[in-house]
Amino acid sequence: MTDPLSTSRAYLALADEHAPGLVEAFYLQGSVALDDYRPGVSDIDFVAVTAREPAAGELRTVHEALRRSHGETFFDGLYVTAADLRRDPEQCPPGLAVHEWRVLEGSRFERNLVTWHVLAQGGVPVRGPRPEVHTDWPALAERTRQNLAGYWTGWRVRAAFTPGAWTTSWGVLGMARLRHTLAERRVTSKTEAAAFALDAYDQRFHRIVREALRLRVGGEPQYRSPVHRHLDLLKFTAMVLAEP
Results as ranks from 00 to 15, higher is better:
residue 80 V to H: 03
residue 96 L to M: 12
residue 229 R to K: 09
residue 167 T to C: 07
residue 50 T to Q: 03
residue 179 R to A: 02
residue 199 D to E: 15
residue 189 S to H: 02
residue 183 A to Q: 05
residue 65 A to P: 08
residue 219 G to I: 07
residue 154 G to Y: 08
residue 69 S to F: 00
residue 229 R to M: 11
residue 23 V to C: 09
residue 194 A to G: 14
residue 172 V to I: 11
residue 188 T to L: 04
residue 189 S to T: 03
residue 185 R to D: 07
residue 234 L to F: 03
residue 6 S to A: 15
residue 227 V to R: 13
residue 61 T to H: 02
residue 83 A to D: 12
residue 156 R to T: 10
residue 147 N to C: 10
residue 205 F to A: 00
residue 211 E to H: 13
residue 42 S to E: 11
residue 242 A to S: 15
residue 156 R to H: 14
residue 65 A to K: 14
residue 227 V to H: 14
residue 33 A to R: 00
residue 232 D to H: 07
residue 228 H to I: 15
residue 7 T to P: 01
residue 82 A to T: 01
residue 5 L to Q: 11
residue 201 Y to W: 07
residue 130 R to T: 13
residue 188 T to W: 02
residue 98 V to I: 11
residue 126 V to R: 03
residue 18 H to E: 09
residue 49 V to G: 01
residue 175 M to S: 07
residue 62 V to I: 15
residue 211 E to N: 03
residue 223 Y to I: 02
residue 13 A to L: 13
residue 131 P to N: 05
residue 81 T to S: 14
residue 121 Q to N: 12
residue 23 V to F: 01
residue 2 T to A: 08
residue 166 W to R: 14
residue 181 T to N: 03
residue 208 I to D: 02
residue 10 A to V: 08
residue 21 G to A: 08
residue 178 L to D: 11
residue 47 V to T: 11
residue 238 A to P: 13
residue 15 A to S: 14
residue 95 G to I: 03
residue 90 E to N: 13
